[in-house]
Design a protein around this nucleic acid. Structure first.
Length: 488
DNA sequence: CTAGGGTTAG
């Protein structure tokens, strides 16, 4: 149970802050007044603040707080906090609303400790924190992964009646519990809300559903979904579907995903968009169901949704995976007539397709086309091309390209190094192995399992020197991924 | 002022 009874009244906040809690202090009611200034950037805002702070008499707390709110909305959280401190120094009688903005800023900066310090000064100033303030604090802890502390805070809020917890507060706690995969407690809290009269809504349920979908617990997710819809009568919304559809795709159940997407499309209140459809198209392509993927794309305009370049990248990738390069090429060539501009991912996809077919000259052609079209080859482009060159046994070209890559300022990453290492080992380019291992070690990159076994076998066969073992051990291969796909 | 979601390539 989350809400075990706890008699250590007040202790959590008091201990944490060293402050006295006065829940019965009078609340401050500010009057609203028109906005004095309109600011759109930080510099203007800071100028306005300077003017305000030099005015006689000093503008009211309401005006200062509105300015603070504007700066916070521009996401200049640190500046807001600085100005708040200056307000306090000026003697502006800050109120509950000012405090909530500052606490919000601290939490956005992942500094809940500072947020609690602000809460402490609320109590000192006899400002009663409201539910929104406690929700923000709770969320701050959850965002920082301090789930146990978040739980304790919630318990204190309830047992000490610091504020009336609402559905937002419970949902925030549920998010935290899901984060640690504590679904027993997360679901328990849903039930407890029900009993306590604070009925869980679609957000509370969808939080749990989404987390389960992300962790491939699709059956559990549907159990909660059914409970929500059929037992509680809460209809799903677009967010619920956007969790369940990718969740089904992720576990290879694209048929059900496509049924669900149709269900979603039939609902007038729901609006699946191009991303929702692209998830399904991509899943179908990866399962090799290209005709179905094409059908989904064809059906999109009927729903006033136009496939974009990302949708077509998935389709092109699907054909590349099936080895149907001519179809991939046809779709690629048709992009212009659909008013779509290929991006670097499009080219990388085709490049990989040609490399997999060992059509290195075609791949080279695509590679050159990237720059001709005014795009920049990225680390994926270079890595794919390097892999293709090694596959075509063009080791000298590969080494040359690696140099060009570095010269143009494109930093190789761990995949690049593993691809190079694999290529060298498979092509008997043993002179380069040590240099690559040293550079990987310098950058802290991990060794793929496939490369580890290649290295071990070469050492066992006395082709490579035993002294490399020490270096290999430092690359922590036990944590690395299996890249046996390279051997195809 | 506070809680949940979604796309492509090595």
């Amino acid at each position: 149970m989350v809400l075990r009874s706890n008699s250590a009244a007040y202790s959590f906040i008091r201990l944490q802050l060293g402050i006295r809690i006065s829940p019965f202090s009078a609340s401050f009611h500010s009057q609203s007044s028109p906005k004095p200034f309109i600011v759109t950037n930080l510099n203007d805002a800071l100028k306005v603040f300077d003017e305000m702070s030099q005015a006689h008499p000093l503008p009211s707390v309401v005006e200062f707080t509105q300015l603070l709110n504007d700066i916070t909305k521009m996401k200049h959280f640190s500046s807001s906090i600085r100005l708040f401190n200056r307000m306090c120094a000026l003697g502006v009688p800050v109120n509950e609303y000012t405090m909530s903005i500052v606490i919000n800023c601290c939490c956005h900066l992942h500094r809940s400790n500072d947020a609690f310090a602000v809460l402490g000064s609320c109590f000192k100033r006899d400002i009663v924190p409201n539910t929104a303030i406690f929700n923000t604090l709770l969320n701050g802890l959850v965002v920082e992964g301090r789930i146990r502390e978040a739980e304790r805070l919630l318990v204190k809020v309830i047992t000490n009646k610091l504020c009336e917890p609402n559905v937002v507060m419970y949902s925030t706690m549920i998010k935290g519990l899901c984060k640690t995969r504590d679904y027993v407690q997360a679901v328990g809290l849903l039930k407890l809300m029900d009993k306590s009269g604070c009925k869980p809504n679609v957000v509370a349920y969808s939080t749990v559903i989404d987390s389960m979908c992300k962790h491939k617990m699709i059956d559990d997710a549907f159990k909660i979904y059914k409970e929500m819809v059929f037992q509680k009568g809460i209809p799903p919304d677009a967010v619920t579907y956007n969790s369940l559809i990718p969740g089904l795709c992720k576990v290879g159940r694209s048929k059900e995903a496509s049924k669900m997407l149709k269900e979603m499309s039939d609902d007038q209140k729901m609006s699946p968009n191009v991303k929702t459809f692209t998830i399904l198209v991509d899943a179908l392509c990866k399962e090799g169901k290209l005709e179905e993927a094409e059908a989904v794309i064809k059906s999109m305009p009927e729903r006033d949704i136009l496939p974009n370049i990302v949708t077509y990248n998935s389709l092109i990738n699907g054909y590349c995976l099936q080895g149907e390069m001519s179809k991939a090429r046809t779709d690629f060539d048709s992009l212009a007539s659909r008013c779509l501009i290929p991006n670097v991912v499009t080219y990388n996809t085709l490049l990989k397709g040609y490399c997999n077919e060992s059509k290195i000259d075609e791949a080279m052609h695509i590679f050159n086309e990237i720059t001709e079209r005014g795009l920049e080859p990225d680390v994926v482009t270079y890595t794919t091309m390097l892999q293709g060159l090694f596959r075509g046994k063009r080791c000298e070209d590969a080494k040359e390209l690696f140099l060009i890559m570095k010269e143009t300022g494109c930093s190789p990453n761990d995949t690049t190094y593993n691809v190079l290492l694999h290529g060298c080992l498979k092509n008997q380019q043993y002179d380069d192995v040590k240099m690559l291992l040293v550079e990987m070690d310098e950058r802290g990159y991990l060794l793929w399992a496939s490369n580890l076994s290649l290295l071990q076998s070469r050492i066992a066969a006395k082709i490579l020197d035993e002294s490399l073992f020490e270096l290999i051990c430092k690359l922590e291969p036990e944590n690395s991924v299996n890249a046996s796909c390279l051997d195809t």
